[in-house]
Design a protein around this nucleic acid. Structure first.
Lengths: 226, 226
DNA sequence: TCCTTTATGCAGTGATCGATGCATAAATAG
DNA sequence: CTATTTATGCATCGATCACTGCATAAAGGA
């Protein structure tokens, strides 16, 4: 949860200026390049050779600056989230109702996953990340936690909507948040397969077209099931 | 599309019985074991050493029987589909309306993705397959084609529903099929992350709770968007 | 100027990757 | 029986994996 060995604060307080030879490359730019590569190809398919070539530095500099491949990936995932989370959550936070928030989240996800306003890689780095769980337990847990964070935000917003009054108290916010999260996850897979933005946009709208039914009848729906 | 080098007919017509030393292992059982391993760990994270150990055979026998890792994966994907597609599509095919078919597909997917009635690996092998596109273009295309097959089945069913009359002619069956496919894809990711069957079951129901709104207003929804 | 500190380039570490050569074992055909 | 055909076990291939030791270059502090 807190900063462990994998995620040291990147721009930690530089109390004294470094005395030796200064770094010849921009660390942030290199991290951005690494992030893009991991985003596109994933952890396992991205080799150190791929990274050093794309970043324009040698392996020694990479390890001196980032420690290991795992630590670099962890920093890249953090960079990814802090840099691009606004694309997906800004309108969500401004929305006045739970439904508007969910729709904004899915619509803006559709935009972000198809390149945004620039040429971002398609798909969601956190959703599509699949680190083989052999010896990378720490990374796998970090990725799972990142995914879980999105769910928590959704559920918290829906819980607040109950207090605000725009969501009935009987609504199951956990299931609601899971549903929205699952739709976004599915969009990520389609985006990686080359889906157009309009397709994902339409899906965002269709997903919430039954909002009133969902929020009002989800519990009695479970009773009907049993 | 047709059988290429990667997918020779496994049980092709044995015109004459083999003359030499018979194989000491069951090829189908070995393929089933390999399929399960690929299903759980994916293509890249599953090594030949992992496979030979799990299958209980040597590398020479593996290559003699299956050709290469790529060809083995292709056969495993085919085995996966032909063996388990019934879990997901049987009730779908029997359904009398498009909505019932879609609901059956999502509900049965929820069951299959959480182990079915035995201890199947969680998640969908085809959906979660992510072969790094470096030098494995043929496999990547095969996987994309497998995913596309599911979409085609859904869309064909919805198109038929228009003729049957239980779906309005104005409905956009392409978007409808994409939506259902995306929900199922998202379920696969959640299943791999350890989702309970009940959670995915609830999502299947929620996804189709706006069916009447979707099928009736999807086009005017697009107009409202523009 | 000299000394310390840091970064870089190059070569190379052991390990593992997918895949093979070779000798041998085991079966059938004659 | 012998000859032929096939499967297997063992050792190993070159390539690549993540990663590091060592010598050198380049900066600041004194």
């Amino acid at each position: 949860m807190q900063n462990n060995a994998l995620t040291p604060p990147p721009g930690s307080s530089s109390a004294r200026p470094p005395r030796g030879r200064p770094r010849e490359f921009d660390r942030v730019a290199a991290l951005a390049t690494a992030t893009r590569l991991f985003w596109i190809k994933g952890y396992e398919a991205t080799s150190i050779a791929d990274l050093t070539e794309a970043m324009g530095i040698g392996t020694k500099s990479l390890y001196a600056a980032f420690g290991s491949k795992d630590e670099l990936y962890a920093e890249a995932l953090e960079y990814y989230y802090t840099t691009y989370e606004g694309l997906v959550w800004t309108r969500f936070r401004k929305a006045s109702t739970a439904r508007e928030a969910a729709l904004a989240f899915l619509e803006d996800s559709a935009i972000a996953m198809t390149g945004g306003d620039c040429d971002l890689p398609h798909g969601c780095m956190a959703t599509l990340a699949s680190v083989g769980s052999d010896g990378h337990a720490e990374l796998a847990e970090l990725i799972r936690a990142t995914r879980a964070g999105g769910f928590d935000i959704l559920k918290a917003r829906f819980d607040r909507a109950k207090i605000d009054g725009d969501l009935v108290l009987a609504a199951d916010t956990t299931k609601l948040a899971r549903f929205v999260q699952i739709v976004q996850s599915g969009m990520a897979i389609r985006a990686r397969d080359g889906a157009e933005r309009a397709e994902l946009h339409a899906v965002a709208e269709m997903a919430l077209s039954g909002w009133e039914n969902i929020t009002a009848t989800v519990d009695q729906g479970m009773e009907r099931e049993a």
